[in-house]
Write a protein that binds this DNA or RNA. Structure first.
Lengths: 134, 134
DNA sequence: CTTGACTTGCGAAAGATTATTATTTACGAT
DNA sequence: ATCGTAAATAATAATCTTTCGCAAGTCAAG
């Protein structure tokens, strides 16, 4: 199976890289649609899957409803806001997480995912305000 | 708001504890249905939500399609099989993960979730076998 | 026993993702 | 440059998981 670089695929890749964020499929769909009004949401999903299989992007199966996609391939972790679900990158040295090397429970370990949860600065303010009401 | 201990709720809690696993809502539904054939799936979902709000169980928002629920409340991490999606507990000392204390990117950190991915023993065998075919 | 808030069961709806299918397109070979 | 064909697309239907709305049922306090 050879993968072609179609206009749609190229555009999806470009917009994901441009955003530098962690977009969901439909957010990306909205952005791409500005340039290609006739693109289908299914195409976005399909290409995100294909690109992620091809290791050209990364699928984040982080908590929450929607999957998100990241154009940054280098290993890194994420921090996300429990209130507004914003996701940001987190640079932790690999030395910051000690893992059972090689095996644990008979598993062959292929990776790890560290997700830090918290309140982002914006939501902290919001909550401080609404406390008065409560 | 007071929460009642209805038969359904009790049964859901009991079956989740009995399994010691990490069941999805519909797996739990199937089990409970053996004892209460008329129970509704929505009731299972509702109660899992309520019990998890009440800190009587824990909702795992781990990668994958379905949410899973855990009756073990003590802090622990999880390892899951990329092939068969089985989830198991992982006991790591808190010292095994170093986190930026207090703040990172302006966030107030409320927790962390570590997910180790790998191939479980069963799937390792399956894959070794199928390699011959490829 | 009665009341009223909490719950249930059921069906429908919502949200996210995947599958189907007819049509179009990219790209290597001619 | 043109052709043939496998791969990709658009549009829509379908699926899967989870939630919602509401009438009817149930529990616990008085």
């Amino acid at each position: 199976m050879q993968l072609r670089m179609t206009n749609q695929r190229e555009m999806i890749l470009r917009e994901l890289k441009k955003s530098k964020g962690h977009l969901s499929a439909d957010e990306l769909y909205e952005r791409v649609k500005k340039f290609m009004p006739r693109i289908s949401l299914a195409t976005v999903y399909r290409n995100l899957e294909i690109l992620s299989d091809a290791r050209m992007i990364r699928k984040l199966e982080i908590s929450g409803r929607q999957k998100r996609y990241d154009s940054v391939l280098v290993d890194h972790d994420h921090i996300y806001c429990v209130e507004c679900h914003r996701i940001e990158n987190l640079e932790l040295g690999t030395s910051d997480v000690k893992l059972p090397v090689g095996e644990a429970k008979g598993y062959t370990i292929t990776g790890r995912r560290l997700e830090v949860t918290g309140l982002c600065p914006v939501c902290q303010k919001k909550i401080t305000k609404s406390k008065k009401i409560k």
